[in-house]
Write a protein that binds this DNA or RNA. Structure first.
Lengths: 229, 229
DNA sequence: CACAAGTATGCTGCATGCAGAATTTTGTTT
DNA sequence: AAACAAAATTCTGCATGCAGCATACTTGTG
């Protein structure tokens, strides 16, 4: 049987958004992924199966399975005989990923203009307006989360599952870095302006314009982030 | 210690292209992936840990870890309590994936024009010429493999690792389907014509043209494949 | 004869044990 | 005191054992 602590882990995972049948595997994956994204596990850290397992209250077997999963996602690396290490992204890695992300979001924007319903677009507009509120208040964390939500929403509105899945993998790799690198008032203002254009293009269903904005927005993100790496 | 059969599995894996230090994990992943791509494991098949493990000569533990890895790659699905199943792709899944692939290859083409050396382009030309030979002989399998190689080469020449990695995941999901659906002499001729244009655009380093060809080529691939699903 | 309930088998998911590699500590020599 | 060597410890990688769930089968009943 799964231990007490493991049951807790599953419950915590399930409470984020109840799944048909939450599994320990998924719970561990989600937890370790968060630990990486939130910076609890610093890049370069060697993951000690014994300690980490005790910490999470699971035995080494399901933990190892979860780690292999995260290796495949590109968040961890495997050194034979030495276990898993939190992957370190070079500046080039980040740049490369942002180029691809920009391209994927550009595609998503184009498809979203085509496939989204009016109601769905209105929902994105609401997210956008709430985000602008947070910007007025200079409330960084909720701004950041809403920002992510908007990008995810556009991806979802593309109605292309393959696109959503590859995007989310790349996105997860950079999540931490993007959060770190979100500095400077004038650059922030620039990002906000981009978002204003975005929502307008989406409402006008102007596929080419939205696509362009999203791609260029990502290039600017690189400018914002590059010094933080 | 890893069993005799396991050692054999590793050796076989290593012989494809010797790695610094081949691991059993990688060998199992590669083997099962191939079994799926080559159709030995039909979509929908439930993977029996006991049998499959015996078949490959490994115990359940490393096998399960490998399966989790393949789940993350999207080749398998997990039903809680019922283990791993070879993922079944719907027509929409394939179409969605091809759209994304087309976009990624388009990006790769653009980057390749920018970053590839002349020598590298000459190598692609050689692959192309060999592929044309195979077309003349109507020798399907080597043609297919060279075709894949050319596409992979363009990806590599983009010098963008993130791009290579997301592309290869998506590519692996469709590899089997693309092979199946490569039928009909007139469509084949069309694909060959596309490739002729591709190599010309690459040699001319005409980024926009190459990008366009690659994206459109993928749309045509859908036409070739759609009836086979 | 059809169908449902109970039973039996088999499989997954998790824990633990063990061998060998990696690392650290300790001891020895210069 | 520093550098190297050897022993001891720790950790990974793999195998196996066990509990609980899923499924198939059997048996009883309408």
């Amino acid at each position: 049987m799964a231990s007490e602590a493991a049951a807790l882990l599953i419950e915590e995972f399930d409470s984020r958004g109840p799944i048909a049948r939450p599994t320990l595997h998924d719970a561990i994956v989600a937890r370790v992924r968060d630990m990486i994204i939130e910076g609890e596990l610093v890049p370069g850290t060697r993951l000690h199966e014994g300690n980490l397992g005790k910490m999470l209250g699971v035995s080494r077997t399901p933990l190892r399975e979860a780690l292999k999963f995260l290796v495949s996602e590109g968040l961890l690396e495997l050194s034979p005989g030495r276990g898993a290490v939190v992957r370190q992204f070079s500046a080039k890695d980040v740049h490369d990923s942002l180029i691809v992300l920009g391209n994927l979001e550009g595609l998503a924007g184009r498809l979203a203009c085509e496939h989204a319903t009016d109601a769905e677009i209105r929902e994105v507009r609401q997210l956008h307006d709430r985000m602008m509120d947070m910007y007025e208040k200079r409330d960084r964390l909720p701004y950041f989360k809403l920002n992510q939500n908007i990008h995810s929403a556009i991806l979802r509105l593309s109605k292309n599952d393959a696109l959503v899945s590859v995007h989310s993998v790349l996105q997860a790799r950079l999540k931490r870095i993007r959060y770190i690198g979100n500095e400077g008032p004038e650059k922030w203002a620039g990002a906000v302006a981009d978002h204003e254009e975005m929502i307008n293009a989406l409402e006008a269903r102007d596929a080419e314009r939205l696509s362009k904005i999203l791609t260029v927005h990502m290039e600017k993100t690189w400018e914002r982030v590059r010094n933080a790496i």
